[in-house]
Design a protein around this nucleic acid. Structure first.
Lengths: 247, 247
DNA sequence: TCAAAAGTGTTCGTGGTACACCCATGG
DNA sequence: CCATGGGTGTACCACGAACACTTTTGA
């Protein structure tokens, strides 16, 4: 029994969603000297839980802390580890060739998704392997490293499912927002049109948003009411989930 | 940068649920020479995905194959690894002392839950660390190794949640079953009473079970209809989930 | 005063909830 | 023929779906 057979390297990959111009965006890294993009990620250090590691990844790339992150899947397919990209990075002196042995090792990755407010991420920071860090539209993904495309797909599927059980928005939207803005977010994530009036009633019935008594002026039509989230009730509902009627 | 810091050992732990005498049971292992129980688990071998590893664990302990297993969480708390149990196993000659270094390593564990038919598990097999393998009632758990109690709790919470989106039963019940039996299963998992007549209508409306035209004779009252699952439709519904009405 | 889009209200139908009633079986 | 528990039917109500009307804003 050779124990070294059972020691894969474990990393954390974060699918960071933002919402801008009625599009869902994902934060991605462009690798140095390669025409490839990657998800922000990192290794789990000693005495760190995966959650802490994921929080650190998010902090390092966006500067944001205390953001809602959700572990959604572990990717363990032995075929997912490929060294070809690494070898190219080494031949371009981005990585030292000593590390090849390490990267030849088996990798498994814990997938997290995070929801952040687009406007709060001013200057996303690339890491040492990448030349830039920026938002990429979900439906215009470039060529991605390893199985990162599948990771994003699964994160999106999970986000979609979670939306039917938990509220979403407190991190994706600015502090103050209007009903049409919240609706646009839901329509984007669910990829379907929702009736204005029914949406309004449904959301209000959840009691998670508060009328600020302000109105958003400036546009050529009736000024919509400005709302903010009731953080206490929001997190309560987030924790308990909706009470779905099945029996 | 010491890469060896980032190399935890990765195991798979399976929470195997069975249903017997209107109780949810979990398959557990009694450790040799210790007054401790553990979940069936194993390491992920080279060229194995976690799913395959979990299937192997299930096969080795129960003999069953092709069972529905669901990855539900990864446990990465650094505090979860303790060597005290291992040291006791070594001092009792169950384990060779060479392996202590290995077990001093950091562990993370991928949690799966499985649903199996109680009666199909005739002789559950202990592994080399344990003296017996048997069903334990969920509400009478003995003292458990490491964080296995939390793993079970979380598996149960997830199963409970999943029940509101997916059907359950095809693996937990025998091939042929009656409506009251199915209802007892649901009531046990959801821990609440369900109205007989409404349950019946709801289940039938899902179109996942078929009337076998048989009746279960022998009891002192009207003989209930015997049903079986429509495997095609069942797995279809399992994959798609219920369409919950939210927008 | 007009177009655009937001706020308010109404109707309808499906499906969940809460029941009452009848029917088969073994003792 | 009777107790027990399973099968069938119905009335009610909440909530989602579809839709019409009024109000506010800037040009």
């Amino acid at each position: 029994m050779d124990f070294s057979d059972y020691v894969p390297s474990v990393s954390v990959d974060c699918v960071v969603f933002g919402f801008h111009q009625n599009q869902l965006k994902v934060l991605m890294l462009k690798l140095k000297h390669l025409n490839l993009w990657a998800l922000p990620g990192g290794f789990i250090e000693n005495n760190q839980s995966a959650t802490i590691a994921a929080d650190k990844v998010l902090k390092d790339r966006t500067g944001l802390e205390g953001i809602y992150q959700q572990q959604f899947h572990v990717f363990t397919d032995p075929e997912r580890s490929q060294t070809s990209h690494i070898e190219q990075l080494i031949s371009n002196d981005v990585l030292d060739k000593d590390v090849l042995g390490w990267f030849k090792n088996r990798f498994i990755s814990i997938g997290y998704y995070a929801l952040v407010e687009y406007s709060k991420v001013n200057k996303p920071e690339p890491d040492f392997l990448s030349e830039k860090c920026q938002w990429v539209s979900l439906d215009e993904l470039p060529e991605l490293m390893l199985d990162h495309e599948e990771i994003i797909k699964r994160a999106y599927v999970r986000l979609n499912q979670d939306l039917y059980q938990k509220p979403v928005g407190i991190n994706l939207l600015p502090e103050k927002f209007t009903m049409p803005e919240l609706q646009a977010l839901y329509e984007t994530i669910l990829q379907k049109k929702i009736d204005r009036r029914n949406f309004r009633r449904k959301i209000l019935s959840l009691n998670i948003i508060i009328d600020t008594k302000e109105k958003r002026m400036g546009s050529n039509n009736r000024a919509p009411i400005v709302y903010k989230f009731d953080k206490t009730k929001y997190h309560q509902v987030l924790k308990e989930g909706y009470h779905i009627n099945l029996f």
